[in-house]
């Protein structure tokens, strides 16, 4: 299988201690859920895939994205989008500025970029929010901006680090549906790490327990 995200005999250790070993593949539009208690190395796995593994950790095996080996690439060249538990919108930029940070530089010209961002805001029901301070948004609005910021960077895979656990129950289902819906529509492989069984059930894909 060339398309999608493939973890080939991935082994992550800290010093000489093996943290986790995983061999898995996620097809485009599908979701793989990795479950485990805190401290089981779930977030470390995502850091290994995005290329932001902290010094001291070692990674063996290969990570393939759409058939390309990205194991040795710098994070910014991997095109792996990630969403954390916190939205992590950049507090010094406006909502529009946050989206512009993600928007691919291929789209050139002030007007064209502006138009793309306005359209993106419209898509997530936040039309006219470009100049807003992200700190003034509600939790659900922030989550949607974070998702859109990531999608505008045109990732080829989606990594989710317990992104729904901070939202209240009503909102959680809504954002979950939005994220999984967008991933399916764009044919993105999704790797979800969580300790919440409800997340795994909603994702509907294969489940790996660490």
């Amino acid at each position: 299988m060339a398309e999608g995200l493939r973890l080939e005999d991935v082994r992550i250790s800290f010093g000489r201690r093996l943290l986790l070993a995983l061999d898995a593949a996620v097809a485009p539009g599908e979701v793989l859920t990795v479950m485990g208690p805190s401290g089981s190395g779930k977030s470390t796995l995502l850091a290994a895939i995005t290329g932001t593994l902290a010094p001291g950790f070692t990674l063996e095996g290969r990570i393939l994205l759409d058939g390309h080996d990205i194991t040795a690439l710098p994070p910014e060249a991997r095109r792996t989008g990630i969403l954390f538990q916190d939205e992590l919108l950049f507090p010094h930029l406006s909502v529009g500025g946050n989206l512009a940070f993600g928007l691919s530089p291929q789209i050139r010209g002030r007007a064209a970029r502006r138009a793309r961002i306005d359209a993106a805001l419209q898509e997530i029901g936040l039309a006219g929010f470009a100049a807003r301070d992200p700190a003034t948004l509600s939790g659900g609005q922030k989550a949607r901006v974070a998702l859109m910021r990531m999608l505008l960077a045109e990732p080829r895979a989606l990594l989710l680090d317990e992104p729904f656990s901070r939202l209240d129950t009503a909102l959680r289902g809504q954002i979950r549906a939005l994220v999984f819906g967008r991933a399916k529509a764009q044919g993105l492989p999704v790797l979800l790490v969580t300790h919440d069984q409800a997340d795994a059930d909603a994702a509907g894909g294969a489940v790996v327990r660490l």
């Binding site: 995005t50 095109r79 990732p155």
Partner: peptide, 29 residues
């Protein structure tokens, strides 16, 4: 400083220098 901001920025395509100048320094002004 929360280094997950750096992880997000890198995943969005920013280089280490880009993270420093465009995210970290402004946030730590």
């Amino acid at each position: 400083w929360d280094t997950r901001h750096a992880a997000v920025a890198r995943a969005l395509g920013a280089s280490p220098g880009g993270v420093f100048w465009r995210v970290r320094l402004p946030m730590l002004l």
